[in-house]
Design a protein around this nucleic acid. Structure first.
Length: 613
DNA sequence: TTAGGGTTAG
């Protein structure tokens, strides 16, 4: 069947069938006519290219090569390796690579890079280790991939950084950029600053990398600081920079800075594309500026599933459930296929509006669609628990959890605990909380939620038990804070804190405000207070909650026509919710408050959430 | 015979 010989430095393959596209039927029963094929290296490469999108045929060619026992030049194998990497079959590329005799360093780089591309960082690190063991000397390119891979693994990044220094490769601009990113990921911002500051050349990409790494690691304020610094340094931002900057503004809820970035974009003549538009859209949505998002969305030349999903989610978290669902059907009419994120928006819209049946039918559709892209994930199940529980169907929610076909996580039980808290079902809450204490003993929020439920029920002995449990287990409460953006600066307020330079004016204003709203019917809701203390003391604690301080600060500083925008790290309490409604009525101001989960738009004594959150 | 670093939705 197969004969191989070399003639005039050409490779001869005698094959049972030709052309190569028929290789896949090599083992068929039809009696083949022997055909001689002369294949030069160029022809062979051409053949490889001709079936470069058919991995099985390529594998057969490779098997054939191995059977012949002739030595194939590394350049051909390299071609095979790169083709398999493009096709996404890294393990086969690795197999070919492993069979090579002394591969050159660029091939080691190629394999490591491929593992990084397909996010198999452990394997990338393993290949690097083998490379080192075999004494292959890394080149200028090696550490860009190796650092990127190892930065994803705990500690490994530091070790390879030391190797890069040893070989004198830390000054290569690409390697240094990866090292800066790595330091940010590891939370070593000081070191990142040092490495960035001592770069030989800081090009646009290096700035973008630093800004983006900060945004992705939750250092949004630092990202915006860098964004401003790069302009001072005379580096003109591009589309990538503004995408990161918009993302940072969204995280922080800084509409003012978001507009500034928008201005910079125009000034620099940065051309909008769908990614930039989506980032801007997301910024408006996360700043509670639904009108701006709407206008931009209608104006967009190009939209993709992310644009639509952003709008659906945006409406949902801003309390405009009907618009979210309308947007969803409009999207489907346009023939845009929803993905699992779109459905998160749809389900949370239903949840926040108490649309139980509608939510159920959307969920059913996800399951029945049989589409891998929209099979419900654990987050969708948590949304359903939230939907059922929030609307008072606690038992159904519990049974739903019990019947779930996927592994349970704290999100699902957390949603049920939240529902128990809303409906004051202490018995079920206790049961769920016990499960959560086991699953996530270090998470203080479940302890606080349970303790608040006990407090609301007047069961102070149980409150004490939970608090004791927290103390013993070293569980910490997350300190609540509220922030307000004013004149390009973010002002942060903690409950009862007097660190702000305008503290005395703020507290004075707050006293004024409390008197004003009490006159029109506000009464402090003391069940929101954690401690078993006297009524007066409870009132004092309540009246200094961080959002109240933030509102007093805003009233002192903002122009009368400006809406008050507050961002909170936790959920708003009942008392502050009621307080905000009265303030919006008494002062005729719009208050837009973003809490951990969603927005509350207070206007004329009402809230967009309809007291359902 | 060639090999880089950045971005969007919960």
């Amino acid at each position: 069947m197969l004969q191989v010989c070399r003639r005039h430095s050409k490779l001869w393959l005698a094959l049972s069938l030709s052309p190569i596209s028929q290789f896949s039927s090599l083992d068929q029963t039809r009696k083949p006519e022997p055909i001689r094929l002369t294949i030069t290296k160029q022809a062979f490469t051409a053949q490889l290219q001709s079936c470069s999108s058919h991995p099985n045929q390529l594998k057969q060619i490779h098997a054939l090569i191995l059977t012949t026992g002739i030595s194939i030049k590394n350049s051909l194998l390299t071609h095979l390796i790169t083709t398999f990497i493009i096709l996404g079959d890294v393990s086969y590329a690795r197999k070919v690579f492993d069979e090579m005799h002394k591969p050159r360093v660029f091939l080691w780089n190629t394999i490591i890079k491929a593992y990084v591309k397909y996010q198999d960082f452990m394997e990338a690190a393993a290949v690097y280790r083998r490379m080192k063991r075999l004494g292959v000397r890394p080149d200028d390119f090696t550490y860009t991939f190796v650092v990127k891979a190892c930065a994803q693994l705990p500690w490994a990044g530091w070790a390879v950084a030391a190797h890069a220094v040893k070989y004198g490769l830390e000054f290569v601009v690409e390697v240094r950029t990866e090292l800066v990113i790595m330091c940010v990921k590891y939370g070593e911002l000081g070191l990142a600053d040092f490495l960035f500051g001592t770069m030989v050349e800081r090009d646009l990409v290096a700035w973008n990398a630093f800004v983006a790494a900060c945004v992705q690691s939750g250092h949004a304020a630092k990202a915006l600081h860098l964004f401003r610094r790069m302009r001072v340094a005379g580096v003109e931002p591009d589309a990538v920079t503004v995408v990161s900057a918009f993302s940072a503004c969204g995280q922080l809820g800084c509409l003012e800075t978001g507009e500034e970035v928008d201005g910079v974009m125009r000034q620099c003549g940065i051309v909008c594309n769908v990614i930039v538009d989506n980032a801007r859209l997301d910024m408006y949505v996360k700043c509670g500026s639904v009108d701006m998002a709407e206008a931009l969305f209608e104006d967009m030349h190009q939209r993709n599933v992310i644009s639509w999903s952003t709008m659906v989610l945006g409406y949902a978290i801003n309390g405009e459930s009907r618009k979210a669902l309308d947007m969803f059907s409009r999207m489907q009419k346009r023939g845009v296929a929803p993905n699992h994120v779109t459905y998160l928006g749809v389900l949370s819209a239903c949840s926040h509006a108490g649309l139980v049946n509608e939510g159920k039918s959307h969920f059913r559709r996800m399951v029945q669609a049989g589409d891998k892209n929209i099979q419900p994930k654990i987050e969708h199940y948590a949304c359903m628990v939230d939907l059922l529980g929030r609307s008072g169907h606690l038992e159904e929610a519990y049974n739903f959890i019990r019947s779930m076909p996927i592994e349970l996580d704290t999100g699902v039980w957390g949603a049920l605990l939240g529902a128990c808290a809303i409906h004051q079902n202490v018995e079920l809450g206790q049961h769920v909380a016990d499960l959560l204490f086991e699953l996530a003993p270090a998470n203080g929020s479940y302890h606080v939620l349970m303790s608040n439920m006990y407090a609301a029920a007047g069961r102070w002995d149980c409150v004490d038990k939970v608090r004791l449990k927290m103390r013993k287990g070293g569980v910490k409460k997350v300190a609540a804070y509220s922030s307000v953006e004013f004149n390009g600066k973010i002002h942060i307020f903690y409950g009862g804190n007097r660190l702000h330079p305008e503290s005395s004016e703020i507290y004075e204003k707050l006293e004024d405000l409390l008197r004003q709203v009490k006159n029109i019917g506000y009464t402090p809701n003391i069940t929101s207070v954690f401690h078993d203390v006297g009524t007066e003391e409870k009132e004092a604690t309540l009246s200094h909650h961080s959002e109240k301080l933030a509102i007093a600060f805003s009233l002192l500083n903002l122009q009368p026509e400006c809406p008050i925008r507050v961002v909170k790290n936790l959920r708003i309490c009942d008392d502050c919710h009621s307080f905000c409604k009265f303030v919006s009525e008494a002062t005729k101001r719009v208050i837009i408050m973003r809490d951990k989960i969603r927005f509350h738009h207070f206007r004329n004594g009402e809230c967009s959430c309809n007291n359902f959150w």
